[in-house]
Amino acid sequence: MALIPPVALSASAGGVVYVLEWQEPEPGHTAALIAWVEWDGKAWTDRRDTVPEDDLTQIDGQNYLGVPRLDYRDTHRLRRERDEKG
Score class of each variant (00 low, 15 high):
A43L: 09
P52C: 05
K85G: 04
D54M: 11
S12M: 08
D40A: 08
E21K: 05
Y18L: 10
R73E: 15
P68F: 10
T50S: 13
W44T: 09
Q58G: 13
E26M: 15
V17N: 10
P27T: 09
Y64V: 00
D49Y: 08
I4C: 04
G66K: 08
D49H: 12
Y18V: 00
R69S: 05
V19G: 08
L78P: 00
L20A: 03
S10Y: 02
R69G: 02
G61E: 11
E81F: 11
D71Y: 09
E53K: 13
D71V: 02
D55N: 13
G86D: 06
P25Y: 11
L20P: 06
Y64E: 03
G61V: 05
G41M: 07
V17I: 06
E81M: 12
W44Q: 11
Y18E: 13
A43D: 14
R79N: 15
E81G: 02
R48M: 09
R69A: 12
G61F: 02
E24A: 09
T75W: 06
R47M: 03
T50G: 02
G14A: 09
W22S: 01
G61L: 04
D54T: 13
P68T: 08
G66I: 09
V16Y: 12
A32Y: 02
P68Y: 13
V67Q: 03
A32D: 03
D49G: 04
A8W: 04
D60F: 08
D74M: 07
H29E: 15
G61N: 04
A35Q: 10
G28K: 10
W22E: 00
G86S: 06
G61A: 08
G28I: 11
R48C: 06
A31F: 00
D40V: 07
G14W: 05
P25S: 14
A43T: 15
D83P: 00
E26G: 06
T30P: 04
W44P: 01
P5Q: 10
T75H: 13
R80K: 14
R77M: 05
S10M: 07
P68I: 05
W36S: 00
E24T: 15
